[in-house]
Amino acid sequence: MRVIYYSYWGTYAAYIAASIHAGLYPADRLPPEHLLSRQWEICRKYGRQFGNLLYIGLDEDMKEIYCLGCKGKYGLAVRAIENFSRIFGIDEPVHFISARHCEGMIPFYVEKLRRFTMSDRYVPKLLNRWMARRYGKCRELAQAAKQSLKGVI
């Protein structure tokens, strides 16, 4: 089974919830410093790549975990992927989990501000503050998804 976490941006709430689900990020506390700076790098590199399905890893039930940034076209993206999956005869089911409610407005500001050269000093701090505030919600989402998908192949 493939599990796709999706949101407006692919590298914020969707990425964090997917990483918690796959066990890349700890579920009981904030990620350590090196993972936070890695998160910043991921946002820099892939933040604006809407529609690029990012592979996160496998969870303990060997489900493939992905994240996707849809730029607000959630229904379209879900329907298109589900239907093309059917057309191409892909038997493995795909499950979509929305992380929109975990995101908030800060990722928009992070993405706006990181265009400026000065932003490298301050924007990662803004991202870290956002993560500290939203991590709990992402964790709840990932744990609820894991629970609901337990035993589903």
Binding site: F50, G51, L53, A77
Partner: peptide, 15 residues
Amino acid sequence: NAVIIPAIRTYLNAC
């Protein structure tokens, strides 16, 4: 289309 087409293509690639 700039969002959905890459999503379809990357999904098929992943499969």
